[in-house]
Design a protein around this nucleic acid. Structure first.
Lengths: 312, 312
DNA sequence: ATTAGGCATAAGCACAACTTACGACATAAG
DNA sequence: CTTATGTCGTAAGTTGTGCTTATGCCTAAT
């Protein structure tokens, strides 16, 4: 049976992008992490990370396994939460910083849900990009940060934080109405198109560009913006196609076609981050659990949307 | 963080009903199991098992935690399967013994799915009660057994087997049309009713009787049968109400109302069992995975049924 | 009574996982 | 080019956890 400690380690390495960083955040030496990672690779029978002197990046198998690891760890912390819930009441203020697309969807849902279940908990939400959200987190201005993470773009988390996976959503191709065939497009099929894209300093833009290069082409970017509404309008106007996380596509503001990619299956992971010290407050744990639950439901309802393509 | 080894141990104890039995099946001494269980209880802060000289039975918290443990272990073996799937083809005959309700639903679905995905795998299914299925398993007549397990009724698995959780379904109250109110009934509300029930030597009957006694009443049994079709017809005819696992309620053969219980949340767990030695054959693992997948889908489609109460 | 099964505790041992120490390599700054 | 600081990996020594063995107590069946 695969060892969970090693799996956690793998996930942390994937999140931090370096072995040394993972070691710091786990309170170990980099030597220990290196050794355990080697053991895990031997057990798995495959390379799980690509080593480079500047850090490491997860291979395909590594990402797969890291995703499973996140599942396992989430269940474990849920179990711990179950046990804690038997005893002890929760109340107090909790500040959350969240990326906009999550704030507009499941974070909002979680807060309304909490208002009913725990009336004494008062949550305040501020929208912030991941880097700013993490700054607010370490500064102590917020208790929880909801940030996103893309393939090819390690997250570089600060130290002394705990991480909780919220949901994984597909990146979808967005194009003018009728611009894709019946079938879900492969990324390689889109090489010749014009592109509308978030700027390169946004993780999303970087991830998509990296994925395109991995497919062997450089996207011809005609329009660049990080305003999702403007971006979708630009697509509608025919300036190009875009690839975005599903939750970031504004609903019903433009007549565009949305299709998940057939291949490669690009994803965005939404994760919640808390200062390890803040986990002493049971309220924070409760809010975190509420976020996890709400994210799970949002994800399934999104899936249902795709079952009825006409709804998009 | 909760230790997975200890969680597996807890689950095994719950399944076997005795510490010594769990120890044998894990290849440990009963002393080790006892010690680790004590550690887990200290970590959890609650009693997880009720000790008696004749064995142990899980407490509420213990069942909760054991369920989480099953989740974790399932994810882990899925991860292992992911890794193995990268290399190695599967073919050959596999014999499965299954309880009827599962055979009629997701086992059938799994087999049709497998026919498409792995044409060289030939599965044969025989319907059998849990005890007989396990006998066939240890005798080597079948490679996999799909059996069910109820609260209050430990399963007493044989040794040298591996266990995989398939799905957990609610026990539902079945009554003549219109016999329940709008709201989901609590078990205590049904104390004064007449009952139709499987016999006491079926795990289902024993579990329901135990649950009733835990609620402080003895069910007035007017009709006793283990034929599900006859049972439902008896309910329709007004001889009493019944409590059955959802999958065991035949679909569309009688005009009855089906309601999940509000409280307590009784459940049936369906699990797959294989001889540990048979896991050397990759085919067996593949069929097992297919069962897990099919069970998962069956469960979600059942949930959807309950979203539209009229459909029942 | 005696046997056989269950569970818990005490004491000792073994291995796994950690730390420390070191070497190789890459980048950035002097 | 040299130095400093970052990365990762390997080797060797240490420690703590989780096992076994040994023992005792309890209950149910013979």
């Amino acid at each position: 049976m695969l060892d969970v400690g090693r799996l956690r380690l793998l996930r942390e390495v994937g999140l931090r992008g370096t072995i040394a960083g993972a070691a710091r955040s786990l309170g170990l030496t980099s030597s220990a992490v290196s050794q355990q990672l080697a053991v895990l690779e031997r057990e798995a029978g495959t390379a799980l990370v690509d080593r480079s002197p500047r850090g490491v990046v997860l291979t395909g198998a590594g990402r797969l396994l890291a995703a499973r690891a996140a599942e396992v760890l989430d269940v474990l912390t849920s179990a711990r939460a179950d046990l804690d819930r038997i005893g002890g009441s929760v109340a107090g203020p909790v500040a959350v910083a969240s990326v906009a697309s999550a704030a507009a969807t499941f974070v909002s849902a979680a807060v309304t849900g909490l208002r009913a279940a725990h009336p004494d908990v008062s949550v305040t939400v501020t929208a912030a990009e991941p880097s700013q959200a993490l700054r607010l987190l370490v500064a102590g201005d917020v208790d929880l940060a909801v940030v996103d993470e893309y393939d090819y773009v390690p997250l570089a988390l600060p130290e002394f934080v705990v991480v909780r996976e919220l949901c994984t959503e597909p990146l979808v191709a967005v194009g003018p109405a009728g611009s894709f065939g019946r079938r879900r497009p492969a990324l390689a099929d889109l090489a010749a198109r014009d592109w509308v894209m978030p700027p390169d300093d946004a993780a999303c833009g970087l991830a998509v560009r990296s994925a395109c290069r991995a497919e062997g082409f450089e996207p011809r970017v005609r329009w660049e913006t990080d305003d999702m509404l403007l971006l979708v309008r630009a697509v509608e106007a025919g300036h190009g196609i875009a690839i975005l996380p599903l939750l970031s596509v504004p609903d019903g503001v433009a007549d565009v076609d949305v299709r998940p990619l057939r291949e490669p299956a690009l994803e965005r992971r939404l994760i919640a981050v808390a200062r390890a010290s803040a986990m002493g407050r049971p309220v924070v744990g409760t809010v975190l659990e509420a976020l996890v639950e709400a994210a799970k439901h949002t994800l399934t309802s999104q899936k249902r949307q795709f079952a009825r393509p006409s709804a998009l």
